[in-house]
């Protein structure tokens, strides 16, 4: 709690850069001073027990939570001074899927993807990629299985082509084929230049997917993953586990 919420003066070039980031939910410190750097194109796993703060880190990076103290920069946007501007550039898949039960799969994907500026071609391609086109496309979301709902939400995210993917337990509800499919999507997105930060309890699969693992405990990154300061070189960190 020693770093005041002061705005950054120049972008770090990192996709995600948190320094001493503190987030209070009411009086409860959901994050108690997180230091984290994620470079563009990286796939980083947030690993930790329930309540460790993984979801809070993801929501902070999406610009959904205010930074109480410390510094936070995502895709060049300073979250301390302006956390709205980054939102249309990130894609968040949280515990909930954000689907309207009465609308069909197509309607749901179209609504969220068009809101994010996706074209009809991008929407159709994303639905094909996630296997929610064809007969499934006209099924109301309320009648989908958990895995189908997850794939529908992912199709909306993919169609928007976010620069930063924030995935909270993305494998939940998916069958083995769906999980493989998701991992392929994540790798392709990273190859195309997107950055992926995700939390998962499925460690074997997640470790295989991630290029780097960051441990979160008690609202902090267990050991600093990156002690870099702005403008300084990026030293190897002993808190990183390379999968």
């Amino acid at each position: 709690m020693d770093v005041p919420a002061t705005p950054s003066r120049e972008p770090t070039g990192a996709a995600v850069w948190l320094q001493g980031a503190i987030v209070l939910l009411g009086r409860f410190p959901a994050l108690a001073g997180v230091d984290l750097t994620v470079e563009p194109g990286e796939i980083v796993l947030l690993q930790g027990a329930n309540g460790a703060g993984k979801t809070t880190v993801l929501r902070l990076c999406a610009g959904l939570l205010p930074v109480t103290e410390g510094r936070a920069e995502v895709l060049g946007h300073d979250l301390v001074t302006d956390r709205q501007s980054v939102r249309h550039r990130v894609g968040l898949l949280g515990h909930a899927n954000g689907l309207y039960d009465e609308l069909t799969v197509t309607d749901n994907v179209r609504f969220w993807a068009r809101a994010g500026g996706a074209s009809d071609d991008e929407i159709a391609a994303a639905m094909d990629r996630l296997g929610v086109s064809g007969r499934l496309a006209e099924v109301p979301a309320g009648r989908l299985s958990a895995g189908q709902r997850r794939r529908t939400a992912l199709a909306a995210l993919v169609a928007r082509r976010p620069e930063l993917w924030l995935l909270d337990e993305p494998h939940a509800g998916l069958d083995a084929a769906g999980r493989d499919h998701l991992d392929g999507l994540v790798r392709d997105a990273a190859e195309a230049g997107a950055t992926v930060l995700f939390a998962s309890h499925e460690l074997d699969r997640a470790m295989e997917l991630a290029q780097r693992v960051v441990s979160v405990a008690g609202g902090r990154v267990a050991r600093p993953t990156d002690t870099r300061t702005k403008g300084a070189p990026d030293p190897e960190s002993d808190g990183q586990h390379v999968a």
Partner: peptide
């Protein structure tokens, strides 16, 4: 109610609308 049922409020905030 339709917005809060499946976490739609967060997505509305992220939607760019």
């Amino acid at each position: 109610a339709i917005e809060v049922a499946d976490g739609g409020r967060d997505l509305l905030r992220l939607s760019g609308l």
